[in-house]
């Protein structure tokens, strides 16, 4: 029996159940990445650029710019390797508000701003050092990242995918755009009824019991559209509950985070998350 400490309020349900959408198969090819590069302002006809591919991605490099396009999802990253996450001994002093304004303006100029979005988070890349005196020295922020979350029919898109991130350096210049947001197609089917958050919590409880988890703190329950990571193929965008929890170990000193994803539509299509691959076979190790 799993003991659950509920520390979260249940999310409010929308007045109308959000529908299930198709997600079109992304176009990922050499010509697609060249078109994308041109759209992002790279002069692909001038020469000097190089296209490469492997089983998961296409990439285009031109000078310090790396553009990567994922076959499975159409997600892409446009990064300047000379500036993205690089410490130029500076300190970024952008406020959240200014960073969000710059990020939105930049995406808008490239026609990449989601039709509707909300700020999921503004994160900062910190650096620090310490010597024998154990005093923190040289603590600085070397970039600010604005993470936008597309909103579809009033519901935020969440998951390992479903974000558009713009990274800014100390000169307020964009160092990287990480676009992990799939194209949403037509409605696949209407949702007949939304399951309740309590249903998701019950489902999570059963999953934890099956794993023999004795004690859990539930920190947050979210209602969202669930989007998988860049390497996964996804055919449908479906409403889901995310249950964010902390699993508490028997001696209470070892705790770990856990995320349970549960379909929110009573008539959900297929699996909402891909089951993890099985571990490689292990033969008993000789002492």
């Amino acid at each position: 029996m799993t003991t659950i400490h509920l520390k979260a309020a249940m999310p409010a349900l929308p007045p109308t159940p959000p529908p299930i959408f198709n997600m079109p198969t992304p176009t990922a090819s050499e010509s697609a990445i060249l078109r994308l590069a041109a759209r992002l302002g790279l002069n692909t006809r001038q020469g000097g650029g190089r296209v490469a591919h492997d089983d998961k991605t296409f990439s285009y490099s031109h000078g310090p710019i790396d553009l990567t396009l994922h076959r499975a999802s159409g997600a892409f990253r446009f990064a300047n390797r000379n500036t993205w996450q690089v410490d130029h001994r500076s300190n970024v002093e952008l406020s959240d508000e200014e960073a969000v304004r710059i990020a939105r303006t930049h995406l808008e100029s490239l026609d990449l701003l989601p039709r509707e979005s909300k700020v999921q988070r503004v994160s900062r890349l910190h650096v620090a050092a310490a010597g024998p005196e154990r005093v923190m020295l040289d603590h600085r922020v070397i970039d600010v990242a604005v993470h936008l979350q597309p909103v579809v029919r009033g519901l935020p898109v969440d998951g390992p995918g479903g974000t558009v991130t713009v990274y800014l350096d100390h000169e307020k210049s964009v160092t990287c755009v990480d676009y992990r947001s799939r194209r949403v197609g037509a409605i696949h089917r209407q949702t007949t009824r939304l399951l309740t958050p309590e249903h998701a919590l019950d489902s999570a409880r059963r999953s934890w019991e099956a794993r023999g988890i004795a004690e859990v703190e539930v920190n947050e329950v979210r209602l969202c559209y669930y989007e998988m990571g860049s390497e996964d193929r996804q055919r449908y965008l479906q409403p889901a509950y995310l249950v964010l929890a902390t699993l508490i170990g028997a001696d209470r000193r070892i705790r770990t985070g856990d995320i349970y994803v549960s379909p929110a539509a009573a008539n959900a299509v297929g699996r909402i998350v891909t089951p993890p691959p099985r571990p490689s076979a292990q033969t008993r190790r000789a002492a």
């Binding site: 390992p160 390497e231 996964d232 964010l244 705790r255 770990t256 985070g257 995320i259």
Partner: peptide
């Protein structure tokens, strides 16, 4: 602090 495994591809990436 605590961390949650979020995507099977994190190690591969």
């Amino acid at each position: 602090n605590t961390t949650s495994p979020w995507s099977a591809s994190e190690g591969t990436n």
